[in-house]
Design a protein around this nucleic acid. Structure first.
Length: 646
RNA sequence: GCCGACAUAGCUCAGUCGGUAGAGCAACGGUUUCGUAAACCGUAGGUCCCCGGUUCAAGUCCGGGUGUCGGCUCCA
């Protein structure tokens, strides 16, 4: 008689069953045949199990079906196996590596000399879906190190052998293999009972990826794909991707005439008038916020002798990213454009003696920075070589850190919430390439972390991701297609004040070393604007919109009053434009709508007579037309909406 | 930087087998003066990204470069 175990279900009930019963049998006999048919895998406490696995101990059991996110992730991993199997069948000699599921689907990395073409992808996709129709069972098997190595050596899978050796070197006793049909891979599992459960596979694109993410290792070909339980879910997802593309800041930037790029200046944006208005609306808002929160705004040179970079440590750790300038006289690269503002702020700080009574001293700067980014990483406004940060450096006493980090978190929250952006925080610790002793890093990391925990903000840990001079808290916001971008950052730095021998006179009349905080909220204007364009789909709120209103005349005789309205609004500091062309009203409305101007002010006989306007808000439908309004109430309304929300 | 794809009028895009480049919108001129998402007629607009090669002939094929895009590495 087998030993009895107790399995607890999510509803709190529990069942006594003999040990060794398979998950599938347990579900069928103790929960129901319906769930047994729908089940994909189960979790016993923390352990994920195939349906064919035995239950050997008591615990809490959760069964996952196609209704859950976990189920979807599972079939995507299944899909990666299926794809890899047909790739090896269709393209003999291709070596396999790894293939996990991702947020949106899955990928699998292959090693093969010849590139996969889009036609190859079509063939692979068709064959993969054929494997689904065959409904091949996934079969699990445990093997020893020797068996595993023998198998992959026979198959000639060099990359697999490398991973197998690693796994056993880390102390594993056995390796699990999963096969479907005659194809086998090792994998932690679990997998669905059979390929038929996958639904539908769609391959998306192929891209290069380095073996183990290391650019010194061989380059692999990564095929991206996705999978869904139902074709209609795939179609819905594809449609959603199309919609997201319409919000792409590069597309909207062109359509809304905000910015452009030219091959003569790769990675540096040309800002049109409209784009510049938006840029300055953001800059002025931040400027005001800083001034009201104890910051001094400063400006420092853009170009420096390398003596500064040697002192700051940039010359040693950051030179590859700097634009060096060849001196005609010395024929040396003695100067560089600044890639960061910090060193120049320290020079400014040093120009005067400072008292403990002044601290914290907060310098805010929106200067232009240049970083020589690798060509392959440039992308629209999100990754550029020339950009402006809403940068600040805060000099303070160690005892003020917690308070200041808390103030900063609140400032950040206030700003992001004003835009309706949701964000996540990451705490990043010492990187391999760094300056400063381990002791100072210990102090900086624990200090910043303690301050972060006092704010009550949820955060994720990113070991090794800190700046070369100190640990940091990064704030990420997602773009329209779900990619995360780092915007704000708070970085704690004990090292640089040392290097620059910064000081302040304490209460004891002796010289002390301040601590430094680097921080940005927008991050860079360029990246922030990219995110905002996608976030609002170009429909900016009145306070941000490049032009807040456009006046359109019904006929030429309405031009004098239209011009009067134009001048009146301009004199109130509103950003307004005038369309007095001889187009029909419908065409002018359309033009204004396409440019997503928040208010279109129609001026015709009625408006001339009453000395007013007929505003139409951006958007479709009958409610867009607000009807006739005297000028003053309209000005009151638009000025209210033009107010900076932070 | 690495892998792959792409580059035609201001914009969006056609261009077959290698045979001397086309549409819509925008622009410009004229007509129209109109009430909430595109008036009509006409005109002009091109180093087919750049350099080289193959060919009687290259937007088209080949090589190199530049830029852009999708990823990787890196990053605000």
């Amino acid at each position: 008689m087998a030993e009895q175990i107790e399995i607890t279900l999510p509803d709190g009930s529990s069942k006594q069953v003999p040990a060794g019963i398979t998950v599938a049998d347990f579900v069928k006999t103790n929960i129901g045949a319906g769930l047994a048919r729908a089940a994909l895998f189960a979790r016993l406490d923390g352990d994920e199990l195939d349906l064919s696995r035995p239950l050997n101990r008591s615990g809490k059991l959760t069964v996952f079906t196609n209704k859950s996110r976990e189920g979807l992730d599972l079939i995507r991993h299944d899909a990666a196996h299926v794809m890899a199997s047909v790739v090896q069948r269709l393209f003999p000699g291709t070596q396999v590596t790894i293939g996990p599921s991702t947020e949106d689907g899955f990928y699998y990395d292959f090693y093969r000399k010849e590139p996969f073409t889009p036609e190859d992808l079509q063939k692979i996709e068709a064959a993969a879906n054929e494997e689904i129709r065959k409904d091949l069972p996934f079969v699990r098997k445990e093997v020893s190190r020797d068996e595993a190595l023998q198998l992959f050596e026979k198959l000639g899978e060099k990359f697999k052998i490398e991973i197998v050796e690693d796994i056993f070197a880390k102390g594993a006793k056995t390796l699990t293999l999963y096969s479907h049909g005659d194809w086998v891979d090792f994998c932690l599992g679990p997998h669905a009972p059979s390929t038929g459960r996958i639904g539908v596979i769609k391959l998306l694109n192929v891209a290069g990826a380095y073996w183990r993410g290391d650019h010194t290792k061989p380059q692999l070909q990564r095929i991206y794909g996705t999978a869904f339980f139902e074709k209609k879910d795939l179609d819905a997802w594809l449609k959603q991707q199309e919609e997201a593309k319409k919000r792409d800041h590069r597309k909207l930037g062109k359509e809304l005439d905000l910015f452009a790029f030219h091959p003569a200046a790769p990675g540096a944006a040309f800002w049109t008038h409209r784009g510049t208005l938006l840029f300055h609306a953001l800059g002025n808002a931040m400027r005001g916020l800083c001034l009201r929160n104890g910051y001094q705004e400063v400006k420092t040179p853009l170009m420096y002798n390398k003596m500064l970079w040697e002192r700051s440590g940039h010359w040693g750790k950051y030179r590859e990213n700097m634009f060096l300038i060849l001196d005609n006289e010395t024929k040396e690269h003695d100067f560089s454009l600044k890639p960061m503002n910090c060193p120049s702020h320290h020079l400014l700080y040093q120009m005067k003696r400072h008292s403990y009574r002044e601290l914290p001293i907060r310098y805010h700067t929106q200067d232009v920075l240049h970083r020589n980014e690798a060509t392959g990483v440039l992308s629209g406004l999100t990754r550029v070589r020339q950009f402006q940060q809403d940068d600040a450096h805060i000099y303070l006493m160690e005892s003020q850190i917690t308070d200041e980090v808390k103030r900063l978190s609140e400032l950040l929250k206030k700003v992001y919430e004003a835009f309706g952006l949701s964000y996540t925080a990451r705490f990043a610790t010492r990187p391999v390439q760094r300056i400063g002793s381990d002791e100072t890093w210990d102090r900086a990391e624990s200090g910043l972390r303690a301050a972060l925990e006092k704010t009550g903000l949820a955060y994720e840990l990113k070991p090794g991701d800190g700046a070369f001079y100190g640990p940091k808290i990064d704030f990420d916001v997602s773009d329209s297609i779900g990619r995360k971008w780092q915007l704000g950052t708070i970085q704690l730095d004990y090292e640089v004040p040392e290097r620059f021998e910064l000081g302040y006179i304490g209460e004891d009349n002796k010289e002390h070393r301040p601590v430094l905080i680097h921080r940005a909220i927008y991050g860079s204007f360029e990246r922030f604007i990219a995110i905002l364009i996608e976030h609002y789909a170009g429909n900016f709120p009145v306070w941000l919109a490049p032009f807040q209103a456009r006046i359109v005349t019904v006929a030429d005789r309405h031009q004098p009053w239209a011009r009067e309205v134009y001048e009146k609004l301009q004199s109130r500091g509103l950003r307004v434009e005038l369309d007095e062309s001889s187009e029909k009203l419908g065409a002018k409305i359309r033009d204004a709508q396409l440019m997503k101007v928040p208010y279109t002010l129609v001026v015709g006989d009625k408006e001339v007579e009453g000395k007013g306007v007929s505003p139409r808000v951006h958007g479709e439908g009958k409610q867009a037309d607000l009807g006739y309004l005297p000028l003053d109430p309209f000005i009151e309304r638009i000025e209210r909406e033009a107010a900076i929300p932070f």
